[in-house]
Amino acid sequence: MTISQQAFEQYTIAFYNLENLFDVHNEKYVLDEDFTPQGRLAWTPQRYQKKLQKLSDAISKVGTLQTGKLPAIIGVAEVENKKVLEDLIQQPKLVKGNYGIIHYNSPDERGIDVAMLYRKDLFTLEHAEPIAVDVTMPNDEPDRTRDILYVKGTLAGMPLHIYVNHWPSRRDGADSTNEKRVTVAKQLMEHVNNVDPILNRKNQEKPLLESTNVIIMGDFNDDPENDSISNEILPYGFQNVTAPLKKFHRGSLNHKFKWNLFDQIMISDSLNNDVPDALYFHQADIFDDIMLRQWKGKYRGQPARTFVGRTYKGGYSDHFPVFMILRRN
């Protein structure tokens, strides 16, 4: 007889790029004119509410097959402000999760930020801060990008250091922008090393309250095999638990009919442990349920987007969420 997954004490930690979650108001100093009722995309209150409903429905199902409950922690990207997150967590599918919000306005030129949602009954917040990154290349104009969000706290008694990322895009070409993402990776690791200078993150035998457990999640605009991930992060005490999920026919987003896995979760070696009462990494997956996919036409099977160009499609996002499950020893 098999043991039900729900017989274990386990928690879902997820990341989801929400694809331009903007409200309908034109804010000063934010390039959000397109996302207004009179704007290029005719972003009406009705369309905004439909997107909130769809995103909340998706988030409510991430990891629930494995745990039977709402995600404990969700890192998110492409949110305009704290208000859109307040609207999101008040949706009927999420309100019972009693989520808290960690958000800071970033200097990104498009006005999009990263943030973290957490269940206040499970995660105790101790500290949070934005980490400013500088990706301006020599002889270039200043390049303003998203901050990295750093959060310290405990999940069901387990100390965690969490970094939520959204790295510079490939819009100007993967090769020409590669150095920017490598630069962000180096600055991220500087912070990690300041938090954990003696590399406790590599120790799989530290007692529960003495361990340094680091989770790096986000939309990296790079695949697992690219320099920024494989050379700048993984050699320093980390495992990419989402890397095995990338296949020719599977990923977290699709560009020109090619699957990529830009959305990833990396964990410190300390989360592969058998320490009594500690949480340990159990499994990871992409939540690419049929509900999140386009179901007809030449883009069948790809993420069901809100917009394709200027054409409103009324979908969820151009990315699938990724997630992992932590279990209690």
Rank of each mutant, 00 (worst) to 15 (best):
T136Q: 05
N194Q: 14
Y316Q: 08
E33Y: 10
G314C: 10
D175V: 13
Q302K: 11
L125I: 09
P276L: 02
S317M: 09
G39W: 01
L55W: 07
L188D: 10
D288C: 09
K206Q: 10
N231R: 15
A284I: 00
P71M: 11
V164E: 01
I325P: 00
H161M: 01
V76W: 03
T212M: 13
W295D: 13
E19P: 04
Q10L: 05
I229Q: 08
D175W: 03
V308Y: 14
M137N: 03
M266E: 07
L85P: 05
E109Y: 04
L85H: 07
H282T: 05
I286S: 06
K82E: 15
F257Y: 15
N20L: 13
D227N: 15
I215D: 06
E109I: 03
L160T: 00
Q302M: 14
S106G: 11
S211F: 02
Q294M: 07
L279A: 04
M116R: 02
E86S: 12
I101W: 07
Q264C: 05
I286Q: 06
T311D: 10
S60D: 12
L52Y: 06
K296C: 07
I267P: 01
P303L: 12
D285I: 03
F8V: 06
H191L: 05
L253Q: 14
T124D: 06
E33F: 09
Y48T: 06
L52I: 13
N193M: 10
T154F: 08
F257K: 13
S56G: 15
P142G: 01
I290M: 07
R310L: 10
T242I: 00
V195S: 00
N165D: 03
D113K: 09
D57H: 14
L253T: 14
L41K: 15
Y16A: 01
L279C: 03
L88D: 08
I162R: 01
P276A: 06
N226R: 14
V308T: 09
S176A: 14
H255M: 12
L88K: 08
G309P: 06
L70S: 10
T67K: 08
D113V: 09
